[in-house]
Amino acid sequence: MEIRLLGPELEHVQSDARRELDETIERRKKEVEDEVLSSLSELASDGKRVLKSQKPTYEMMLQLDGLVKENEELFLRVNALCDKTGVSLNAIIERMVSKNRELREREAVVEPEAVEAVELPSADEFDKKKADEVATQTSTFTLAEPEETALNLPEIDIDYDPDDIKYDWQKATYAKESGDVEATVTTDTTIPEETYTTTTYEEPAEAPEVKAEVPTNQSFLRVRGRRLHSWRSNQDRNDSVLRVTTLGEDFTDRSEDYRNLTTQIGNLLLNYRNFTPEEDNISLDTLDQSIGASKTSVPERRRLYRRLNSGAKRIERYARVSQMAR
């Protein structure tokens, strides 16, 4: 029997049915979504918990694989629901991903747990291990027995007292003070044992005198001391009186320092050699007058001497060599 609903009543029923159907579909969609989200979140949470709590080991991989297999049925069911209800799985996954991203952003940065240190073998252990490996691979070989050597050297045992021997540097020869020096030679069976007795060293009749560069007439004088040329303090020099004799004229000068003495010698010698230093423009007459005239004061002489000589040390040596030449 066919029931026909006509008119506005029919339209009202159709409209209500369509609305209920739409509402059921939306409700189911929401339920499916919530269920899928819950399942996937639980799955992700489990995976995350596994990743957080355990170091990446093979056991962890097995656990993750178990989770996937455990939820495989869930995925299949979700897919079936999606197909039945027309809910897009991709939309659900995108929603889940978005939600997880929000969760990650809210969560504090999780500090990774300390990774258990992997204990490596020590260098010694490693070397030992390598050595063991090498040892197992090393071939052993045996050296042939050495042949008998043709020469058997005798064992020599020399019995002597070092104190018996004395070296005399002056006489340039060895001398033996007393007793003989014996040397005992011990041999193996191939050589009969013998005892050797050295000949006695004889005292030389007369030790040769070795003295190079020494004259025989003892005309030399030994140098007992050497020191660098140094001058006394100014106070000491002021107290000293130096006498210079040349050209038959004596004069005494209380020198202030040795430089004055050398200039005196140099100037007197210049006069003797008839030498006029052009750079000082002082004539020999002036010099002679300065040296010989009693009216010329000692300071005046010194002044002239200083003007004549710029290099006192050179003039000093020049004067002495020239004096020797005289």
Binding site: E213, V214, R232, L242, I265, M324
Partner: peptide, 15 residues
């Protein structure tokens, strides 16, 4: 401690 006008020529020896 001062040189004089007495000069000598010396030969160095090692004794």
């Amino acid at each position: 401690d001062a040189p004089t006008d007495s000069y000598d020529l010396f030969k160095e020896l090692v004794v």
